[in-house]
Every structure is written in structure tokens, then in C-alpha cells.
Design a protein around this nucleic acid. Structure first.
Lengths: 135, 135
DNA sequence: TAACACCTACTAAAGAATTAGTTTTAAATC
DNA sequence: GATTTAAAACTAATTCTTTAGTAGGTGTTA
């Protein structure tokens, strides 16, 4: 059976995208240097990843002097949403309610709960203020 | 370079686990039937997936009559937490704050926001009640 | 202009994932 | 006991992923 080819970001690809999102347009050299802060990875490996990302349409590139400068096309926001949607489908039976419950009830990455709560408080405060002003 | 072998759940494996989580211990036949509600997949394919899950230690099995009955070892809760942690690392630079922001600010899977808020409200109410009782 | 550095393009290889066919085994039934 | 049948075990092929080496081109500089 033929497998449909995906355009989803693989693990290694995601790491490259991360660099591009954080640093803006980069050469392979820069990306490699950035990735090597975490774990050794050959220049040519990064180059291959860039080519794949180009094939999949996640980045575009443009020659600047000797080197190509790669730039993310896929915006981080979208990638995040997509990733969250997949997560939701796979692990939470597609139910946002379950994710919400899990986020709030589970001793998750620990800080997350607090952060969530803080966000929520800020949001609530803002909403309240807005409401007052609207009257 | 040698790749470290992962025990992470792949996409196809996750689907099998989903069935086991939802239905409890199942035979390959049952899993196949369940998965085929979504898309056709050969019995032997599911069998292979079960073997892999066994290798990776996510399920255990036990002969019952002619067939093996597979049972999830990895609990859904843990898989969820792990998946969320990976997501956090990959797409939110490991920052729970960013995830929280994204969840609340982004027109995400739409309902999620509302559900989150509802969860939050319920939680807040509960907390308030508990607080009163503790006094 | 020759040497060097740097970069791309091409090639490659091994492991993982996905899918499923074939063979064997064992249980059930006639 | 022989035959049928259902399941496991084994095998396999294709694609994806990850990793990186080598060859070749081009710009810079001594």
C-alpha cells in the first residue's frame, strides 16, 4: 500500500524551524551553530534538513553572497496550532475538554498550571476592566 | 552515526494504544475491527504494531484461548503528559507560559478556549469553597 | 593565478515506520 | 483422526528519517 507523503514537521525538522523562528532568516552555518549548542550535528546534515524543508514548503531560500539564507514560510503560530490539534486528536480523543481537564488537574510540567492560572487571572482582570469601560 | 532507538509512540502505535485505552484489553481482531471504523488496515498490520508495542514495553499480552489479549501498560495519563511535554519543548521553546498564552490568546480549536475557561471557572469555584471550609 | 576556505549538490547508508503477504501452528469440529 | 479455520510467527517491501561523507564550484587572498 502506498503511503501518502506528509508535509508534517518531523522531529529534526522542527528543531531547524525552531531556530528559524527564533532567529529569523539564517544561513546553514548559523543554523548548524545554533543546533550544536544542544547536540553535535554535521553541517551537511543540517543542509539536508533544509533541503527537505524546502521540498515540503516550510521554508524558502535566497542566495545571499555565497550562501543560501533560509527563511521560515510556515509561521510558528500555525505550526503550534497544528501540533496542538494533532496532540488533541491522538491523546485526548479530539476532545478539548479532556485537554483542558488534563492541563488543570494533572501535576503536569508543574509550572504550567501556575502559569495557566496566572494567564487566566490576567485575562479575567483585563476582561473585567474592558467590561467596566464599555458601560 | 547510530540513532538511539526510541520508545516513543509513533502515530500508528498511538492509534492502537487509543483503542486499548478506550476498550481495555483486546485481541488483535478487536483492535483491527475498531481501527477499521476509521480506515482499512490489515489484520497482520495491526499484529505487527502490537508486536512493536510489546517490544517497546507499552503493552503486555497474555494468551486467552487461541488468541493473545493485549493490554496497555503505559497509562493514558502518562502518555498525555509525555506528549504535552514534547510539544512544549518543540513548539513552545519549553516554555509553559507560551503554551498558556497560545491557548488563551489564539483562536485555537475554538471550543478549547471556552472549555478551558469553563474548567477554570469550575476550578476557581471549587477552590473558593475549599478555602472557606478550611477557615 | 594558485591555494584555501566555504558552500552547495550529490550520494549514501542504516535504522524506523508503515503496510501487508506467506507460512506455520494449534484449536475446534465433523 | 482428518479437515477446517483462526491466529501467531515470520518475512518483506517501500518509504521516511536521520545522519553524514565526497565531489565540485566559487569567491577571496596571498
Amino acid at each position: 500500500m502506498v503511503r501518502k507523503k506528509s508535509t508534517e514537521l518531523t522531529s529534526a525538522e522542527q528543531k531547524v524551524m525552531q531556530v528559524l523562528w527564533q532567529h529569523g532568516p539564517c544561513s546553514v552555518k548559523t543554523i548548524t551553530a545554533e543546533l550544536n549548542k544542544q547536540a553535535a550535528l554535521a553541517y551537511t546534515t543540517v543542509q539536508t534538513l533544509c533541503r527537505i524543508l524546502l521540498d515540503k514548503g516550510h521554508v524558502q531560500c535566497e542566495k545571499q553572497g555565497k550562501a543560501f539564507i533560509y527563511q521560515a514560510i510556515t509561521v510558528q503560530q500555525e505550526a503550534r496550532t497544528q501540533a496542538l490539534t494533532v496532540l488533541l486528536k491522538r491523546f485526548f480523543a479530539g476532545s478539548p475538554t479532556l485537554l483542558a481537564q488534563h492541563l488543570l488537574e494533572q501535576p503536569l510540567p508543574a509550572e504550567l498550571q501556575q502559569e495557566l492560572q496566572a494567564q487566566i487571572d490576567a485575562q479575567a482582570k483585563h476582561a473585567a476592566t474592558t467590561e467596566k469601560q464599555e458601560r
